[in-house]
Design a protein around this nucleic acid. Structure first.
Lengths: 341, 341
DNA sequence: CCACAGGGCTACAACGTTGTAACAGCCTCG
DNA sequence: CGAGGCTGTTACAACGTTGTAGCCCTGTGG
């Protein structure tokens, strides 16, 4: 019941343990005839290598951790699925953690303390900052996804947030909107991601000669539907409300559309809406959502490759910054002919 | 860097390895004074037990696998988050797998072959059937979530699908709908879950003396938005289209509402819609969705407890069937005053 | 004063794997 | 004919932990 061991296979095939080990891993020189005999014995006994023993011996478990602030947020669920897929094609397994955005928890995971058997960590940080991470003792290979700060000493995988935000804004300007609000600016301590998106937004406004009204950038604590709806209500209470909103996540956009709907506004006629993330539901919302689509598959593959590279080609190489692609998907919420992506 | 071992702590504290091991696990008899000395050494060296060595020795890894058909489906993402939380409070970790609904993959995972270091498996099956599972060799403790068939030899965690479907249907009848369609019936090989929901639906119709029109139950292959939209279009092409739809998932309902919208229908005025799953986005859709809400937290806790129970109190107890609670959440899509849940 | 209990601690052997070193046997070449 | 080089194989010692058995004390009761 408890599974055959190398020893059992070896006895059955009439060879030494080490020869079986070599066959299993395709290493060392083994005569074709013995190889076949061993493979036969393996099949008969249904041998499966013991991962723990292997890990104990080699120091490799083949497991990498993926830590996200909130697995139920569709963006992270979709990203997680891509990471799992990318890891599978590279022969390793993913252990998902849900940090809840708690800095202490993120730090614990970044240090590899969550489970000492993991080989590396992919972390999507939220509250973490560089001072906390500066002296992390245990040096587990760490890759940050869509990071919060440039200063954290680790590899980074991200998209060109500034360019993406600029493109989204340009699209709104092109369809004639001039009072463009932004939802997604935190009240304090803006992440690098947010700073870049604001920068792209302002660049586009400036290039078009459109003045920026700070009252059109209400503060938002999280990237949730509830916060999007709340921010939208603030905007709609202005004496001179916006004719477009650029939301830094699709969930914010979903909440904003909900609030606009309750306020009796039509999207896109009265209010154009652009999101960010391209989560699946945005294709099916009513109206479907124009959004910036980061290439999640590429992000996942870059991240998994980066962490595996650091695990094998070991740790001291300089930290890299890897950029994945993105696209602006134009749908109904900005009033173009519905393309039904 | 590579982490301290029991041996290092032992040398530092001037005791034997075994004494340190005893202190770490709070077992055996250790004098208070040595205990303090050991704890001090542990803190100084930042000792963390090596999970693999422990697993190799004890046969327990503290890791359970959760396999779902599709992690990007919000229901499964939300369920996964609950399972992770439940496992954390019970001191174990969760490894998430994405089977894609592939029966072969599900079988592999049900047999514990995905990774031999896992202690137990929570599986949400889609394609698996009992004949495949009958002679699974390796006996990893297995718990099925919302299963496909009663006959599979394992513990089951589910909700009362029949009662839930009946309640949803009764609600539609109560608000005056008479031509009620159902979306979610597969073209063949209906799962136990689907069978029960159909049963609850028909029971309610029968009790109200409303005749059942089989043309109002189009076939659907998957529980996706696209399938929901396609099924809805079929229904809208009928000469006598429905005035209500009961969808077996919120995603189906989302697709159905999308199709209804494109067809120029108003929800709930022209068409009332009820979903199943209570995923977060259903609170924010336009209109918000009336839906059956399974108690996901309870499901997760029952499942984790069940698998842990089987791991420790070992395997041969008779298989149990555990039922979690559910609720019907009435929102805008069935026309009541919007309660903004 | 001896036997014995039991508290507090330690030595040793596993768990299943892999890296290292080495060993036969054969062939080739000088 | 001996040195050297391959090829295929094996013995052995780790990796870090925990279960078992047993040790040395000190204190107590006969």
């Amino acid at each position: 019941m408890a599974g055959a061991r190398l020893k059992d296979v070896a006895e059955r095939a009439g060879v030494s343990i080490k020869t079986v080990s070599n066959v299993v891993r395709g290493e060392g020189r083994v005569a074709e005839q013995t190889r076949r005999r061993v493979l036969h014995a393996i099949a008969e006994l249904d041998y499966q290598p013991n991962a723990s023993a292997r890990h104990l011996r080699t120091g490799r478990s083949g497991i990498i951790a993926l830590a996200v602030p909130e697995l139920v947020a569709p963006y992270f669920a979709e990203l997680a699925a891509e990471v799992i897929a990318a890891a599978k094609t590279r022969g390793c397994t993913v252990l998902i953690e849900d940090t809840g955005g708690d800095p202490a928890e993120e730090l614990r995971i970044a240090c590899g303390l969550s489970d000492p058997l993991i080989d590396g960590v992919l972390l999507s940080p939220l509250g973490l900052d560089e001072t906390m991470l500066a002296n992390r003792g245990r040096r587990v290979p760490l890759v940050l996804l869509g990071e919060q700060s440039y200063e954290i000493p680790a590899d980074h995988v991200l998209i060109d947030n500034s360019a993406a935000a600029r493109e989204a804004t340009e699209h709104l300007l092109r369809i004639g909107r001039r009072r463009i609000a932004v939802i997604g600016q935190p009240p304090e301590r803006a992440h690098a991601t947010t700073v870049q998106r604001m920068h792209g937004f302002l660049t586009a406004l400036h290039a078009a000669g459109v003045p920026h009204d700070p009252r059109l950038v209400p503060h938002t604590r999280e990237f949730t539907r509830a916060d999007g709806a709340a921010a939208m209500r603030v905007l709609l209470a202005l004496e001179d409300p916006p004719d477009a909103v650029f939301c830094f996540s699709d969930l914010l956009a979903s909440g904003a559309m909900r609030a606009a709907h309750e306020h009796g506004l039509r999207v896109p006629e009265d209010l154009a809406v652009v999101g960010f993330d391209d989560i699946q539901e945005s294709r099916y919302s009513v109206p479907s959502l124009t959004t910036v689509s980061p290439d999640k598959q590429e992000i996942a593959e870059l991240a998994v490759d980066a962490v595996l590279h650091r695990i094998t080609n070991d740790a001291e190489a300089p930290h890299r910054r890897l950029t994945a692609g993105h696209d602006l998907l134009v749908r109904e919420s900005t009033g173009t002919e519905a393309p039904r992506t």
